[in-house]
Design a protein around this nucleic acid. Structure first.
Lengths: 130, 130
DNA sequence: AATCAACTATTACAAATGTAAATATAACCC
DNA sequence: GGGTTATATTTACATTTGTAATAGTTGATT
C-alpha cells in the first residue's frame, strides 16, 4: 500500500468519487477552496501514477485517470496509522475521545447506538454469526 | 499549533506520559522496538524545541525536557486533520466506519453506549445543560 | 588548571512533499 | 503535412522528515 500524502489524498478522493476523470476534470472537481495551479495538480497526479495509485487510458489528446487502489484500503491504512500514532493503537480510547469531543446529530447517535447494539454480545471471533 | 511529524509524536508521547525527562531517559522510555540511534532521538528533541513543543531546564550537565504543548491540543489537531483528510470532516461517517472495522470488548462497547446515551437528546448548542 | 567525558548544537545528506516552470509530444485544424 | 495548442513529461527548488556523524561546550576529575 503506497503512502499517500495529504495533497495526494485530495486527488484520490476526487477520483474515487467519480472516475475515470481527465486531469482537467480533476482540477475542476477539487474543492473550490483549493488554490493549486493546474501544473501542481498534474504533478500530484503524476506522483500518484508513479506510486501506482492511479492508472489511465488514453482518450483523444488527454488521459483519463482511474484509481488502482480502493478507497476502503486506503482509509483502513490511514486509520491504522492515525490510531497508532495518536492513540497507541487503542481504538476504544480513540472512540470515546471522539465521541466526547464531537458534536453529533441525534440521527448519527442513533445510528451508532444501533451498530453498537448489533456488535454487542456477539462472538468476537465469529462476527458473521450473531 | 506546530505540526508534529510521525517520529516526533513518539517523543512527545513519551514526554507527556512522564516529565521532565532527560534525553537519555527519553531514549530509554521509547517503545522497545524503536531502532533510532541516540543521536537521532536527540535530533528529534531538538526539532521539537525549535517548534516550541518542548522546553527544558538545565540540570547538572544535561537538560530536562518537558512539554510546552498539551497532549489534548495535539490530539485534537491531529484528529481534525485526519478527519478532514480521510473523511472530509464527516465525524459520524468516520465513527460508523471505525465501529464496523474495529473489534471492541464488551466493556468498551458499554462505555461507548453510555456516552452516547448521555449525549442523546441534549441541546447541541448547550452541552453543559442536560 | 588541564583534561576527560557527557551533553548539546551544528552540519550532512537523501527521500518525500509542496509548488510550479520549462520542455516535449502528439492530436487537431487548415 | 505543418503549425498550433492542449496535454503530458521533465526539471526545479525550497521545506520537511528520517537518519545520523561531527563539532563544540561544560560540568566533573585529578
Amino acid at each position: 500500500m503506497p503512502k499517500i500524502s495529504e495533497s495526494e489524498w485530495e486527488i484520490m478522493k476526487t477520483v474515487w468519487r467519480e472516475n475515470p476523470l481527465t486531469a482537467e476534470q480533476i482540477v475542476q472537481q477539487l474543492p473550490k477552496d483549493t488554490e493549486w495551479s493546474d501544473q501542481t495538480v498534474r504533478t500530484f497526479i503524476n506522483r500518484l501514477m508513479k506510486k501506482r495509485a492511479l492508472g489511465y487510458h488514453k482518450s483523444g489528446r488527454s488521459y483519463q485517470y482511474y484509481p488502482l487502489i480502493s478507497e476502503k484500503e486506503c482509509v483502513r491504512a490511514e486509520s491504522k496509522s492515525f490510531l497508532n500514532r495518536v492513540f497507541n493503537g487503542a481504538a476504544g480510547l480513540m472512540m470515546t475521545n471522539f465521541l466526547e469531543e464531537t458534536q453529533l446529530s441525534d440521527k448519527e447517535i442513533e445510528r451508532l447506538q444501533q451498530i453498537l447494539t448489533e456488535k454487542q454480545g456477539r462472538d468476537p471471533q465469529d462476527p458473521s454469526r450473531p
